[in-house]
């Protein structure tokens, strides 16, 4: 436990010193502001592109549009930035050789993996929280309706999906020892999940739903309990991925 605390602290400090914290904080803050703004401005923008004299009826935007923007942006831009920022978190240490000195001082190998994962989760949680809170504040300000429900749960699902990808990123780093390689492994998983979605039999257990069904949860089309199987599967996948990563990392030459 003591080793974990020491190395976890080092990881957090590293996040600050290598600008990871700043980068994620600001990007997710900007995303948070943009979501309601884009929702509000879209009808005006559409109207201004219409030829003179033509008019169509565009429905008044609501809080649902704002949250739709939120989930779309976090799922695309947000996750991509997080994965990019963390792509070298293990592989840079391996390629530079900074871990050797600490490992020979008695730092257990599983601690390296677990502390790194914990630090990544902290930053990912912070990022999602910033974006969620900012979006929520502005949405309430612009669209004071009561159309959106289960917001916390919907965001939690997306967060869970991100947590899975981060675990896979570490596995990728252990497998291929390069930051591009670990991104490729993670991207490969997303492609695989999308392919699996083509089989309707598996759909119900596909973790991908945690990143795609969010708006259905917010609009009430999908009940919260319908996503429980996917959450269970994702927890199992995260634990399995971490376990495999630790096993592989123990055998890895440094």
């Amino acid at each position: 436990m003591n080793h974990f605390a020491v190395f976890f602290k080092k990881e957090l400090k590293e996040s600050v010193k290598t600008y990871k914290l700043l980068l994620l904080g600001i990007v997710f803050l900007i995303l948070g502001i943009m979501n309601p703004l884009v929702a509000k401005l879209t009808p005006d923008l559409l109207a201004s592109f219409l030829p003179e004299g033509m008019s169509i009826t565009i429905p008044e935007p609501s809080s649902l549009d704002s949250w739709a923007q939120f989930f779309k942006n976090i799922q695309q831009m947000g996750l991509i930035v997080v994965l990019l920022v963390f792509s070298g978190v293990l592989t840079n240490e391996l390629s530079r050789g900074t871990l050797v000195l600490l490992l020979t001082k008695g730092l257990p190998r599983q601690t390296v993996i677990l502390a790194k994962y914990a630090a990544m989760l902290v930053l990912w949680t912070m990022s999602v929280a910033i974006s969620h809170v900012v979006t929520w504040v502005y949405t309430v300000y612009l669209f004071p309706d009561n159309l959106s429900q289960n917001l916390f749960f919907a965001t939690f699902c997306l967060w869970f999906f991100g947590a899975l990808l981060l675990a896979v990123l570490l596995l990728g780093g252990t497998l291929v020892s390069s930051s591009y390689g670990s991104l490729l492994v993670t991207g490969g998983l997303v492609v695989l999940l999308n392919l699996l979605n083509l089989f309707s039999a598996l759909k119900e257990y596909n973790p991908l739903a945690l990143a795609t069904k969010n708006m259905d949860v917010v609009s009430g089309a999908v009940a919260v309990s319908e996503l429980y199987p996917q959450i269970g599967i994702t927890v199992a996948l995260i634990l399995a991925t971490l376990g495999l990563t630790v096993l592989l990392f123990r055998r890895k030459l440094v």
Binding site: K10, E14, K17, T18, R96, G97, T98, V100, L101
Partner: peptide
């Protein structure tokens, strides 16, 4: 060639 955390 010892390598350290260069921000420290």
């Amino acid at each position: 060639v010892p390598e350290f955390y260069s921000y420290m």
